[in-house]
């Protein structure tokens, strides 16, 4: 669905838009990192996993 801005809604400043993008990136990373780490650790060959700690 396309984004729609009501006529009375002001356009956010570039700083606010950047802050929102940063917040989204942080939220998504925090939520998905444990899953991604476990999946990657599961498919990594045991020898390589041990070598990388």
């Amino acid at each position: 669905m396309a984004a729609s801005r009501a006529p009375w809604m002001e356009k956010p400043s570039p700083l606010v838009r950047a802050a929102k993008m940063l917040a989204i990136a942080i939220i998504v990373t925090l939520m998905l990192y444990p899953f991604a780490y476990v999946i990657l650790a599961s498919v990594t060959p045991p020898g390589r996993r041990c070598a990388s700690g």
């Binding site: 984004a3 929102k20 989204i24 939220i27 998504v28 998905l32």
Partner: peptide, 22 residues
């Protein structure tokens, strides 16, 4: 409140799906 401030419905739904997951 933060997600409500996002205009893109698609982005909002993606983030909602991700945060519901755990």
């Amino acid at each position: 409140i933060f997600l409500n401030s996002l205009l893109s419905e698609r982005l909002k739904r993606w983030i909602q799906t991700i945060v519901y997951l755990p």
